[in-house]
Each structure stands twice: as structure tokens, then as C-alpha cells.
Design a protein around this nucleic acid. Sequence first.
DNA 1: ACCTGAACACCGTTCAAGT
DNA 2: ACCTGAACACCGTTCAAGT
Lengths: 204, 204
Amino acid sequence: MPSEKSESRATRPYHHGDLRSALLASAERTLREKGAGALSLRELARDIGVSHAAPGRHFKDKQALLNALALAGYERLTRGLTAVDDAALPLEPRLIAVARGYLGFATANAELLELMFARKHDPDASEEMAAAVDRAVGTLERIIADAQKRGEIIEGDPAHLTLVVGATLQGAATFAANDLLDARTTLDGVPRLVHLMLHGLKPR
Amino acid sequence: MPSEKSESRATRPYHHGDLRSALLASAERTLREKGAGALSLRELARDIGVSHAAPGRHFKDKQALLNALALAGYERLTRGLTAVDDAALPLEPRLIAVARGYLGFATANAELLELMFARKHDPDASEEMAAAVDRAVGTLERIIADAQKRGEIIEGDPAHLTLVVGATLQGAATFAANDLLDARTTLDGVPRLVHLMLHGLKPR
DNA sequence: ACCTGAACACCGTTCAAGT
DNA sequence: ACCTGAACACCGTTCAAGT
């Protein structure tokens, strides 16, 4: 029976290799399984098999670890959105695709999303973070700008329109992540949601 | 010079009177001033002048305190929304008023709002909580239903339309509470936001 | 009924010291 | 460079005992 916890053979044990990555990976697993509140540096260190002070070499703070987690989340989200975005599509299906992408991410990473949005301007990592947010929002803004160029949506500051569309998606994501909506209902509702954003609530 | 901390005269000192209310009041102040992360039962007890074990008599858990705080938040929000809602108004100004109400609450109580939405189905207080959420959402649903009766907005499940409108407001609130938008910009943008929800992004 | 004091099992963070 | 061990100042929660 091979050891489950130590695996101190062959691939070189943990504690030499790359503690930073190991911490992030373990933290993300804990986040997903037991929630943000249950995340402790000491327990992370225990699971990995290093001393409780070791994480301090790689993250000055618990907050620094959380920031790194959130940052990685934004990067994964942005990659997912750009992968799913197809500029050749007409506006409505194009929006449906990225909305589905975002809401899929939100339901599959509820705890992480909370972390990503639980940031109060930390003067430290807030620069990187703001850039990461901008990249994610950029996907949406490009779609809006493209559609405006083609006359598919009304004129006006694209940043403002992006904010409105983004807010709607963010709100739906919050509802879904907090079980006000279940994942299926949320994803199934995306086409109607997008249609309403485009056509409004007033009768045509 | 009167004592600032003890005021153990006249109105009866803290520790006899109503510790539960005192804890909630102090907790809300801490929440507003230093954030949810900085909230400690022991510090609360210290500030009020009771032993660190005393809070345990009134809240079985730290989470129970947070739940009570969130519940009070929903009640205040609902009162604020119903106070600001005027059924005699036409749809658009009526929606603008309650949207302003909600976003005003969100910017003025950012930390509390996070608490109110940071709930993962706690089988305990989740019943009361769900009811409180329903009351808040009810304000919006009534507006939607009224407007449908008057033919001011399209037909369809009012619960679904409410969800869409609610999501947009919730997303905007999240942006505002996390300084992606400042309070002024948010409130000033409400009429445009509502107009977009009603008329959609497509050119008319 | 309500509160206290002590105790238990945890935390995050720091810092000398080890390799 | 990276990690350890001990130490410090905190936590939340429980429980006998006090009033």
C-alpha cells in the first residue's frame, strides 16, 4: 500500500520542491471543500507537511495568500471567457455564450468568487488585482463596443453599458452562488436573461 | 467630565440591562468601522465590560451573532424600501426610487451587505433569513406585478422578471460596495440604469 | 436567569537559530 | 535561500462555580 500523505519518493517530496504552489493548490481545495472561513495557514502547513512558520516565507500574510488565490481566479475566469467568446457570432448568441461562461464559473467556484469580490482596496496587491479585473471586464467591453460599431445596440459610453450588463451578470452570479438559484435554473435562464437585457422589460 | 466608557449611573449600566442588544449594537459599529474580519466576540465583551464568556449566553455561536446582524440588516432594508416605494408613481420613477433606496443602503452599509449575502444555507437561522429575504424581494415583486397589470411591462412569470431586475440591482450594489464604483456615480447612474432595464440595449 | 474564571484547543505572526 | 521551534498575543467555546 503506497503512502497517501507523504509520497516522499520518486517525484521529490513536497517540502523541497515548490511550497508556494503547493500552498495555493491546497488552499484552493480547502476553499472549495470547506469554505473560506475554514482556511488556516497552520492547517495548510500541516497538510503539506511543513512547519507552521513556513508559509510565512512565501506569503507575508494570510491576506496575501487570499489575494493570490483571487488573482488566479480572475485569470482562470478571463481565460475561460475569452475561450468561449466568438467575435463572429451575432450579438445575442455571443452574449449568451459569455454569460453562460461567467455563470458557469460562478456556480462551480462559489467560494472563490466570494473571495474575488470580497476585496476592500488593499493598497498592496490592489494594482495587480485591478488589472486582472479589467482584463475580465474587457471581454465584455469588447463585445459591447463591437455591437455598437455594428449598430446592434444603442450608442453611449461603452464603459457604462458594460457596467450595466456586468452588474446584471454579477447579480445573477451572486444569486446562483448563494443558492437563491440553483445551478441548472441559472444556466437554463441565461437566454431569457440576455434577451431581457437586450430588449428591456417594456412591451415592444 | 462624565465617564465615556462606563456611564454606570442613571440609565442603569450596561451589563445588567440588555446585553444582547448591546452586543448587536457594538458589533454593528465594529462592522461599519473595521470590517467583518475584525469582529471578535472577546473584543465585543471587553468593550461592553462583561466577561468574554458572557456573549455565549445570548448567541450560541459567533455565527449566530452574525446571523442576527444580517437579519436586522434585511429588516432595515425592507423598511427603507417600503418607505420609499410609492405605488401611485408611474413605473419608471417608482423603480428609480426603490433602486436608489437599495443602492443607497448598499453604499452606506457595504460590510453589512456582504454579511447579508455571505450566507451559505445554515439550516438553523436559514428559515427566518429566507423569510427576511423574501420580504425584501417582495417590494420589488409587487412593483413588477403592478406594472404587468397595467400593461407597462411584458408578460411572463413575475418572479422571473423580479429576479432579473433584482440581479441588476444586486450587481450594481456589489460594484458600489467594493469601490468599483463610487457612491456618487452609482446613485447618479440610477435613472440611466433603470431606463436601460426597461428599454433594453437594442436600438428602439 | 445571568454572568465569571479558568481551561482547552486552536489561531496568525515573528524571530532567532538551524541546514 | 528556505525552513524549524519556540514564543507571543490573540481567538471561540465550554463548563463548573458564583451571585
